[in-house]
Design a protein around this nucleic acid. Structure first.
Lengths: 226, 226
DNA sequence: TTAATTTGTAATATTTCTGTAACATTAAAA
DNA sequence: TTTTAATGTTACAGAAATATTACAAATTAA
């Protein structure tokens, strides 16, 4: 079962892009272009998550947040705020007023989608898929287990996240930088070659008993899951 | 296995109270604030029991009841009706239209919970077990007893709640924060490392005589019941 | 009240994980 | 073939996370 997402955002082009893509992913989406109306509609709609623009013509994001958190029925509604580049201060205020995550405009839909799922996974796991599979590889996000050909495999936390990352987009090649950005906690600085070592560790763990190597090295580009 | 309960009730505050508490008891709960939509969602959700408000803005409880009883898939769905004080006549009508029990508002959650269990025990005994089990572990919520391999085990109150929590969702990994939120009384502030100590105490108690450890440590994530 | 049990924390021990550097190997370019 | 660049492999020290222990404060039972 996929969840319901409500969008409050005044740039129609963004709403359109996001709404369309989320619906393609199976979410039920409703939206409003302004704050006051949005609040009312939202409460009727009862979403599992709210995407909230921080700079609205009528109401500020903070006001909306406060209103929502005050309403006992929506106290726990996960909120992701959309903020324009550089409004660092807003991020702080946002996180203080109980926002769950934020995405800086301009953003790629993939980035937004990943954050939505991460937030939902925490707050409302049943609305989001928990098993990732590829060929005979299976990763369970809830139980934090990995299997290859039905045999359980032990992975360290970083290898787990790395595999999780590859599994969300099999076959796609990622550069070391992209991997770093996504798999490592923000503002951590690690040598890009470090990834090679983790790739090796991951390979060693998942390529059991003569099973073929599921990780492909793409010289000068990066790595991918086959 | 705990059952699924659907709620059709237009007072959001009641829905929230009931839903939250039922979920805490391990039921899977879904709800709707109005009759027509509720009927549709209910049929998708396939609950083991329905809590039905008798006075809805759009459809009357009777109509919903009739609709349900006419549908061969839900002919036997147990229904508990929620009725406002003094509407004696409704009770009669309700029982006539095949309601299994009724609860008069305002009600305490405990009262409702007891009735739900009573009705389920009659109609679908396997969903109400007051006993939670996992492998050779057994916990009786009523008698507050715990057994491993049929030998009784003494647990302190906190260890009991902790084990109870794990047993409602075996295999699932919980972070220390999640454990804290659920197992500890609200607004108590305890160090997150404290959980490690309680985990140890729990382990020490339930892993008797060389029996395997039933609690799994998942580095960087938390703990789970195997 | 006293005794017994339970609880949270801090201190210490242990285990596991991580990042890096150094060296080896492989593939591409010259 | 030789050279060069990129990736593979290994070992290891420091870091991080968890396990264990002991103890004092708080709670409950006797």
């Amino acid at each position: 079962m996929k969840g319901k997402i409500f969008i409050i955002e005044d740039e129609a082009s963004i709403v359109q892009l996001v709404q369309h893509n989320l619906e393609k992913e199976g979410f039920v989406v409703s939206s409003s272009l302004n704050g006051n109306e949005g609040l009312k509609e939202l409460k009727k709609f009862e979403p599992n998550l709210l995407l909230l623009d921080w700079m609205l013509p009528d109401l500020s994001g903070i006001d909306i947040c406060k209103n929502i958190r005050r309403d006992s029925n929506f106290k726990n509604l996960p909120i992701i705020m959309l903020t324009a580049k550089g409004e660092e201060e807003d991020k702080v205020k946002g996180l203080e007023s109980g926002v769950d995550d934020y995405v800086t405009k301009p953003f790629s839909f993939n980035e937004l989608s990943a954050r939505i799922k991460a937030v939902l996974r925490r707050s409302d796991p049943k609305v989001v898929a928990n098993e990732l599979t590829f060929e005979d590889l299976k990763l369970d996000r809830i139980e934090k287990r990995v299997f290859r050909a039905d045999k359980e495999i032990q992975l360290g936390p970083t290898e787990f996240r790395l595999l999780e990352f590859f599994l969300t987009n099999p076959k796609r090649v990622y550069s070391r930088d992209q991997i770093l950005e996504t798999v490592w906690p923000n503002n951590v600085n690690v040598e890009s070659r470090t990834i090679d070592v983790h790739i090796r560790r991951l390979r060693q763990s998942i390529n059991i008993e003569g099973k073929k190597d599921l990780i492909r090295t793409v010289r000068a580009s990066g790595y991918s899951l086959i």
